[in-house]
Design a protein around this nucleic acid. Structure first.
Length: 639
RNA sequence: GGGGUCGUAGUUCAGAUGGUUAGAACGCCGGCCUGUCACGCCGGAGGUCGCGAGUUCGAGUCUCGUCGGCCCCGCCA
């Protein structure tokens, strides 16, 4: 545990107070007590973590941000009355203690804590703050529901795991700043009160009091500001920026989140990959002392979808998806497959090593574990085969549906998959996108179930050559896959209008152990091209002018080619800390319903505040508020 | 908007098929204990079984509704 920069404790040799009071200066952190303190008198301040009261002798573990130290209350060395007071100490009381540091006898060393060879013999102490009985104990051995942890977050954050998580996050922020500063990036703050834009996530809106009826939006990202900064000639910008998206939450998604937001002028994709591989390496060096090998591997989007069924492949294990459409070209009498393939569908498969025994017929039949899992992602069915060796040692595939497939067909399938005896073959026959998604999800699920994932591995990967647009079936329109300012790949530019779906963009994502931790693109810097893309997206000239006029103007007054990237700090920290929940790397996160159990945000406000904004509730909301007030039985204020 | 799952003591949980006084561990309170360290020993208190209806002679248990937590689908340029 490093002494933080700026922590400036007085010398240990200053004259020591006989009495510990709030006035006496702390000499070191509990967790930093070390051999050099032996024989010296020190002042410690911290929380009473636990107490072992032997009647005639009391041991207390005193805890602070650096760790714990055992302090010993011995009636022979304490002023009158203090030993009796020590009996009354309770969990989480805040204490100042003065005393001499002693080395423990060999047989009394506690190997479980860093300061276990030492203890402080208390000469005097003061209770700086009495604690009520805490709602839950700060105890690694007992789990506490997340609800409670968030309601009493100040207590939860005292837990060593949370301390470590939050402090590692601070060090990562520092490492990022040092790295980017060193490369000439300029940290620039951008507004939180922004203009609402169409496209993209739902905005958090802030009503304007001064201009009633108008709204600001909180930034989904500083996207347009950072592009404008390139046109302002700053050349390299970054910001550790808070972003807001009013969408439903997930284990890896909060409504407000933090991005390392970057933009460069005159970049090539290669430069961007190199710079930010370096940044990720700096993060892992700082946080974990690990050297990430660079350059990171790259995969095109279409490759990644075909082989891993995802644009954020988990490369910590193999288990690749194979296309087996060809194997069914002849000798397959399975109507379902034939029909789908004739209509342009594909058959794709996972060949799961050792899966034949692991998964029973019950788990494989319709409605069973694996088909049910597949159905969640849109699969209409999941076909399977078990690979067995016959007497001659030749691999054959058996299944409840084997009779629909000729021997040749099954042999072709086994060959295409290089199936070994004991393997389980899972096949999805569907539209290419559905087959990819279903098998991609199954791949990750099976990777976990079969223990294929090396949790110590770090597998970053750039995903490149994303499509510029995808077709929104519901809205019957093209839709920007990344965002509307992403540059098309110049090689595909001539198809922009004729075949938009085939146009690749200059966008890239950084995938890390199956999670998208960053993404960006080279931007459009010609106003004409930007207009063409808006047109494709169904943004009329008037709307473009209204919503993005400032950008189109700025592009006309000398816009350098530019591009950038943004990284999700929260997701990177999840990877660094190895947690499954984004809430474990955020000091004050929100629940799934976007509320904060501690502060009870969001909450009602005074009627006058609402009126001032020129707003009124709909009748259904009014009714809900009135019902809630009734239930509270006599709560006088609004809501 | 939808699916799943959970809600019982301060905390974490157990309470088959509905049936007498709802249990355990830790914590808490009181007592004892001079080398413990997830201290130990003895004793004790502590419950609106999330909330509201319903079925039933009888509901922690069954049904419906509702609120909240978590996971997921949709959504997240």
């Amino acid at each position: 545990m490093r002494t933080p920069p700026g922590a400036n404790f007085p010398s240990l040799h200053r004259s020591i107070m006989s009495q510990a009071t709030s006035e006496s200066s702390r000499t070191c952190y509990c967790g930093e007590l070390s051999a050099e303190h032996v024989g010296k008198e020190v002042v410690l301040k911290g929380w009473m973590h636990s107490r072992r009261d032997h009647g005639g002798l009391i041991f207390v573990d005193l805890r602070d941000r650096a760790g714990m130290a055992q302090v010993v209350f011995d009636p022979d060395s304490l002023p009158d009355g203090q030993f009796e007071q020590a009996h009354r100490l309770r969990g989480e009381d805040v204490l100042a203690v003065v005393g001499q540091v002693r080395r423990r006898d060999e047989d009394k060393i506690n190997p479980n804590i860093a300061t276990g060879e030492l203890e402080l013999h208390v000469a005097s102490f003061e209770v700086l703050s009495k604690a009520d009985v805490v709602p839950f104990k700060i105890d690694e051995h007992q789990s506490v529901s997340e609800d409670h942890r968030l309601k009493y977050r100040y207590i939860d954050l005292r837990r060593p795991a949370m301390q470590s998580s939050i402090r590692t996050r601070a060090r990562v922020n520092g490492a990022v700043r040092r790295y980017l500063d060193g490369l000439g990036f300029i940290e620039i703050e951008t507004p939180i009160l922004c203009k609402a834009t169409p496209e993209g996530a739902r905005d958090y809106l802030v009503p304007s009091r001064v201009q009633q009826g108008s709204f600001y939006a909180l930034p989904q990202s500083p996207q347009l500001y950072k592009q404008i900064l390139m046109m302002s000639g700053f050349d390299r910008y970054y910001q550790i920026a808070r972003c807001f998206r009013d969408e439903d939450l997930r284990a890896n998604r909060q409504p407000e989140f933090t991005q390392i937001d970057c933009e460069l002028s005159f970049p090539t994709c290669e430069e961007i990959y190199e710079i930010f591989e370096g940044m990720m390496a700096a993060i892992y060096r700082e946080a974990k002392g690990i050297e990430l090998p660079t350059p990171f591997p790259r995969l095109t989007y279409s490759n990644s979808m075909a082989r891993f069924g995802s644009d954020k492949p988990d490369l910590r294990f193999e288990l690749e998806i194979r296309d087996v459409t060809e194997a069914f070209a002849s000798g397959c009498e399975f109507k379902v497959f034939n029909t789908i393939i004739e209509k342009g569908g594909v058959a794709r498969a996972l060949c799961v090593p050792g899966g034949a025994e692991k998964y029973s017929n019950t788990q494989l039949k319709p409605g069973g574990e694996l088909p049910a899992f597949a159905a969640r992602y849109g699969a209409k069915g999941l076909a399977w085969f078990r690979a067995e060796a016959d007497e001659g040692g030749v691999v054959s595939l058996t299944s409840n549906i084997a009779k629909f497939f000729s021997d040749e067909c099954r042999a072709a399938l086994a060959a295409a998959l290089d199936a070994k005896p004991g393997d389980l073959v899972l096949i999805v026959c569907d539209k290419a996108a559905t087959a990819a998604t279903v098998l991609g999800q199954l791949r990750v699920y099976l990777g976990g179930e079969l223990g294929l994932i090396d949790s110590d591995a770090f597998c970053p990967c750039w995903i490149t050559d994303f499509p510029l647009f995808d077709w929104d079936e519901e809205g019957k329109r093209w839709h920007a896959l990344h965002h509307p300012f992403t540059a098309p790949n110049p090689e595909d530019l001539d198809r922009l209008e004729s075949d938009p779906g085939s146009v690749r963009s200059l966008a890239y994502d950084l995938s890390f152990n199956g999670e998208e931790v960053g993404g960006g693109s080279i931007r459009i810097h010609q106003p004409e091209l930007q207009q063409r893309v808006f047109r494709l997206l169904g943004v009329s000239e008037d709307e473009a002018k209204d919503k993005f006029g400032f950008l189109l103007d700025a592009l006309r007054f000398g816009a350098p080619p530019h591009g950038g990237i943004a990284f999700g700090v929260d997701r990177i920290m999840m990877q660094v800390m190895g947690t499954d929940s984004i809430r474990d790397v955020i000091a004050f996160p929100k629940t799934q319903s976007a509320s904060c159990p501690m502060t009870e945000a969001p909450s009602g406000v005074e009627t006058s505040q609402v009126r001032e904004l020129g707003l009124r509730f709909t009748p259904s909301v009014e009714k809900k508020l009135a019902d809630a007030a009734d239930a509270e039985a006599g709560g006088g204020s609004v809501t």
